[in-house]
Design a protein around this nucleic acid. Structure first.
Lengths: 213, 213
DNA sequence: CGTGAAGTAGTCAAGTTTGACTAGCGAGGG
DNA sequence: CCCTCGCTAGTCAAACTTGACTACTTCACG
């Protein structure tokens, strides 16, 4: 599964109603064209596909209000809404080292309620641990290690990456527990980055308004 | 660019001459079917594609010696050899957070000479640094940070991942400088894993025979 | 002996992704 | 006034990927 469906579905959902170009711009604004396959062709393809599958409803719209060809607007359906949350939850908990999916999921994290987001992230850490155990267990050959030689560095890399991911997730959990960001059902939406200094970007227990737990 | 071309080209190259099923088995042995798109269809497609492009030369071979349909054997051409090293070098230095490509590149690392491998890995770290600077610079909005809200966590994740990757690469460099593994032009080949204990897999300056620098 | 499980080698249609391309319109300069 | 540049909005063919499928052989075992 790629990230494109989650991204497009989420973008349409945030607008209530959107045409392809709008989605495309949203995703560009997020930088998604750099870290995912959110290219024009893929976006329009995903829109059409999901319309066929009943996740989106297409309105044929008259010529655009701002130059260019006529455009089609899409609206998310109830089934689309369900699918969005299904994809979001799955993307959050699963560790498949596809950064694009993980990134997309983080982008929509606040569409959940804070408690559920935290649960899913904790589940994610658990699953990373399981995956790590599988790798280190299954892939060490019977006749002792050191049989793999440099190929073992691949596993080494994977385990290192998994550990790093788990550590980052723990950091995020801590920030969320401290009340960072505004989640579904917590008052006004926002649009905006928690960026710290560049030297030590994960050091502080940074505070953000909207705390309630 | 996906990892499949590098993987297939490298596998054929290691055998001197190989048919698709052999490549497929090699990659399965490396676990590549789990961390890359090395599925049958993709492998056979890549073989045919690269034959069309003159990177491989196909020998039509009589019915197989061990059951099953007749098979086609491939041999790497000079241009294929060039392309292999081009892909390998590019994959090693570029940071595009595609773990499959990076993994494939590590798998073929020892096809280079030790000195070049080290140079490329150092270049990789430099590029990760550049990329990191681009992200933290370009993506912090003009009107101060904290405008991005939770979206900033995506950047946060990316920066964290990049740092982790750089750290791992530095570890690998250290192991290689200490003489680990056998590189091109350093005597007999090997086939085999450097796996340490699971608790602290990157701790020791583990020794491996074949040192000469 | 025969039969079914496992291994060998590869094909194929359907779906997805890519990147280049089309085409309309408005704003600004000469 | 006109012409080109850039933005808007989307299409399309070619390439790639996926996963199920074919078909053939050998081997073990009752």
């Amino acid at each position: 599964m790629s990230a494109i469906r989650l991204l497009v579905l989420g973008a349409v959902r945030q607008h209530g109603r959107a045409h392809g170009y709008q989605v495309r711009n949203d995703l560009e604004y997020w930088g998604a064209h750099e870290w995912s396959n959110a290219k024009p062709g893929s976006i329009y393809h995903a829109l059409k596909q999901m319309e066929k599958q009943g996740l989106l409803h297409a309105h044929e719209i008259a010529p655009s209000t701002a130059g260019g060809p006529p455009r089609t607007e899409y609206e998310i359906t109830d089934r689309g809404e369900e699918e969005f949350f299904r994809l979001l939850r799955e993307s959050l908990v699963s560790y498949d080292q596809k950064m694009d999916i993980q990134s997309a999921a983080i982008g929509f994290l606040v569409e959940l309620e804070r408690a559920e987001a935290l649960d899913l992230l904790r589940d994610r850490i658990r699953r990373i641990g399981e995956w790590r155990a599988t790798v280190t267990g299954h892939y060490i050959p019977e006749d002792g290690p050191d049989q793999l030689g440099h190929i073992g560095e691949i596993m080494n890399l994977w385990v290192h990456t998994a550990d790093s991911d788990a550590a980052w997730t723990r950091g995020l959990i801590a920030r969320l527990e401290a009340g960072a960001y505004t989640f579904a059902g917590e008052g006004e939406r926002f649009v905006g980055v928690l960026t710290e200094g560049e030297e030590n970007p994960y050091a502080t227990g940074e505070r953000h308004p909207g705390d309630e737990r």
